[in-house]
Design a protein around this nucleic acid. Sequence first.
DNA 1: CATGAATGAGATTTCATTCAT
DNA 2: TATGAATGAAATCTCATTCAT
Lengths: 194, 194, 194, 194
Amino acid sequence: MSSLREQRRYEIIEAAMKVFGEHGFYQGKVGEIAKEAGIGKGTVYEYFGSKKEIFQQMLMYMFETYVEGGKKAVIGEKAIRDKLIVLLDYHYAFVNQYADVIERTFFHFENIVKDIKPEIAQNKRKIFDFVLEIITEGIETGELRSNLDKETASIIILGIVNSSHLKRIFIKADSINKIDSRAVIDMVLLGMGR
Amino acid sequence: MSSLREQRRYEIIEAAMKVFGEHGFYQGKVGEIAKEAGIGKGTVYEYFGSKKEIFQQMLMYMFETYVEGGKKAVIGEKAIRDKLIVLLDYHYAFVNQYADVIERTFFHFENIVKDIKPEIAQNKRKIFDFVLEIITEGIETGELRSNLDKETASIIILGIVNSSHLKRIFIKADSINKIDSRAVIDMVLLGMGR
Amino acid sequence: MSSLREQRRYEIIEAAMKVFGEHGFYQGKVGEIAKEAGIGKGTVYEYFGSKKEIFQQMLMYMFETYVEGGKKAVIGEKAIRDKLIVLLDYHYAFVNQYADVIERTFFHFENIVKDIKPEIAQNKRKIFDFVLEIITEGIETGELRSNLDKETASIIILGIVNSSHLKRIFIKADSINKIDSRAVIDMVLLGMGR
Amino acid sequence: MSSLREQRRYEIIEAAMKVFGEHGFYQGKVGEIAKEAGIGKGTVYEYFGSKKEIFQQMLMYMFETYVEGGKKAVIGEKAIRDKLIVLLDYHYAFVNQYADVIERTFFHFENIVKDIKPEIAQNKRKIFDFVLEIITEGIETGELRSNLDKETASIIILGIVNSSHLKRIFIKADSINKIDSRAVIDMVLLGMGR
DNA sequence: CATGAATGAGATTTCATTCAT
DNA sequence: TATGAATGAAATCTCATTCAT
């Protein structure tokens, strides 16, 4: 059955996340992915045409998982403030779960997938649109200022969302200190000014 | 004198920025760096012990340039708001100047420099401290709320600073639209909330 | 019964002729032969021990077909001149029918079948003997000069027979111009000299 | 100097003739060519872009050598009969010298060099033209019949020239019996008929 | 009998690094 | 000091063959 094939594909992608996460794209060896997945090297090529394709499919999978999960996480919240907090928490959890592979590849694959599948590009755009939606909704419900430039606000939120992961990079690589989502969002909503 | 040697080292690093910027670390060839620098392949190894070392030194150089330049840019401004705006502009200009190499390597070198020189780690910390200083100063001068958690605020600023470059990644790769630093900072200072 | 098995073997050989004809021995894949024969890859190995064996059997089959067909074609002719013309036509038709596989393999299998089955060697010899017979007969009937060195004459005829296929190779690959068998044979019988 | 590079290229081609001659294109390994040439595997790639390119250049070299040598060999002879005899001898010597590689590749490279360089195609044509010239000259000098179809005659001669090598293939693989060029040519000139 | 998923040996090719000049 | 020809380790990918179903 095809679901068996799907299952095997998924196992390889799982293994790829581990290996690419540990070593990045160029240092991640196909042989190691195979070993990690508990199969032969040649078998990997029965399911994916090339190392690059494994990587692309892995990214696709992560993007989809990310966007889907994010929407699901946010859906339960009513207040925009809560949505943003949940989004921040979700992002942090996601990044932590896939920490290595994200740090090494998620925001850094442009040159690897120059012949990037349109679906991936779409997914990138989806993340932005997702945040834009929340902002728009916040303005409509009156929780956010009505004169807010929505695109700029989204950029800011996205930047901050991404900060959780920057913290580890910029402050200490081994930091496991989670940023306080509540504090962050409140600071953004209230403003830093006096 | 050693200054000739320094000069030559610098030329190689310049070439490395070009080559690594265009192709990333693993696809950037030492031979291309040599050609770009107008010297022989073997000569590169008279100045650097390995490809990895060239890369590390290049990062060091960029960090130092970044921090130094940032401090210099900000020094002329009195108001914290202006300092932040200038910082954002500076970051954007810096990222644009070294756009390719940053996108491909600046936030992605963990695995390349596992045996990272302490100086690089220090420089990363310096960037954070630099922002932290501005925030602290802002609180002291009363421009920022006194109950602000300084570290969190710095993380937010850093995240936003980094947004300028995220915009290109998340929205459209070919976008040349600069984010409006003034609008962004004001939004952060005033808050998004009603 | 075994005739079912024979039938299946024949189908595989037919498929092999197509595949080896298109891609040659090394580029012709067993999987493609299987697909062409409409059976599973594993099934091929129920009938043949290895790719090499398929190839050897295919050659055997072609040799036998060639020699048999050649004799049959010639048998109806009385005059040696006609026999030779018919032989030339037959060879051309045969080569055209199996054009690709012959061009790619017929004269090029030495290293593939180093452990060549004696039967193949015998078949090669048979082709020569077949021509030798015609020459001998021609001398006996007085159509050919009595002082003709039979072996040399056979070599010449064989070379010329093979020319039909050389024409395509040496002049233009896409040439479909058949050489005029009558003209050729007459030229050989009459001689080129004044 | 460039002649050093030329020299090295030639050495590699020599090694390639040996290796491809022994094992054919697909079984001839680049590593073996390198070893045969007494250099490292990587060095081969400093001189040729790929295995295919080595093969193509080798063919080019052989064609050129063949045509040049053939013309030189024939130039000393006045009579057409002698020219043809010399050509036959020359061909036999050439084939013997490069026996293996010719048997395995010379008439069998169509699919390897699909992207065949125009120069190779030209060389193939040159061989035919070369024979055509001799025939034409023979007619002009009156040594050959004036009503001879020149193209057909050339095909015949080419086929026969090629016979010397067919002899080994069709009769016995280990035969070192040279065909008697004089006898062959005379038979062609006089004709086989009574 | 028939199958095709799984395998891994082995080939080509790349490129950082060395070292004789 | 500067060079670039030479190197070979190592990686990706192919495909004949096996064998559990």
